[in-house]
Amino acid sequence: MTVRTTRTTRAVKTVRTTRTVRPRITTGTAGPGRPALAAGALLALLALSATACGADQPPSLFADGTVQVGTKNDQPGTAVVRNYKFSGFDTAVARQVLKAVDAKPDFGIVPSEDRRAVLTDKTKDLVVATYSITVDRMKDLDFVGPYATTYEGLMVRKRDNRIKKPDDVNGKRVCTWPGTTAANTLESPRYNRIQVYEAPDASTCINDLKVKKTADAVSIDQMILYGFTQENPDLKVVPDITYGSANQYGIAMAKGHRQDCLKLRDALRNYLGDNAWSQDFATSLPSIPKADATWETDFKPRLETVDSLSCRDRPGT
């Protein structure tokens, strides 16, 4: 499995089209054909204007039916690769909303810290990778979402009963990884009694907690933590400990595709409005319905929130 770094030829096609229709403006002497020349020049000018207007509109991301989607490969439950196939709730959401716009995803792996870059440098069309919507990120990217809502939580070894309430974490080594809002939250002075450290990625944190035992806990969004417990039965999520405010996961895209963004927003609204969301969530993350009786209330976003955060430069109120 490799990360696809090439871009489709869509942009190249646009340039070629522009070149072929660009009119050549010539000056000539007056003669019998002057009205015809004038009419020709006018038509050429109109064609040039039309081409210029057309060039302002970027081609639809869904035009060729396949959309390059960046996602994770190491988060069981949300996005993971098994036998060269992507699965998890993020990938289910991507498939569902793209199906509504007659497109299908071509998944590629994107680490947390590269999620913004792959969109701005046009390596990917969309990123669906437990990417939280923040005011800062909305300035650079458009989001469709949230498609899920989750608090940051704590995961410990199943037999470790030292951590049951927030104060128990003081003095403990807590692993997280860069590029996440979780790492940002725990850097706050409110949590300065927790020994937070960053590992390169999720897998390293899990290894530190489970095998090396150099970490007492791993902190990231509860939805992701529950996913890890599905493949690591010797780990558990501490139910009564959350940090910060709720993360709102969104489908990210580069700015400049507002029409596509609005189409995906409508698709997401429909997806949230019927049973498909709950079925996909329960299929991908069965550990959550088992642990949380009010899981639909806790993890399913409201449609009003989708309207407030989708396809905007700052949250609507």
């Binding site: 919507i133 923040t134 800062d136 809002t181 109120t317």
Partner: peptide, 15 residues
């Protein structure tokens, strides 16, 4: 009314 930390999850829709 703004998020205290604009780099963190936004709370504006619920405020």
């Amino acid at each position: 009314i703004d998020d205290h930390d604009p780099a963190g999850p936004t709370c504006l829709p619920d405020t």
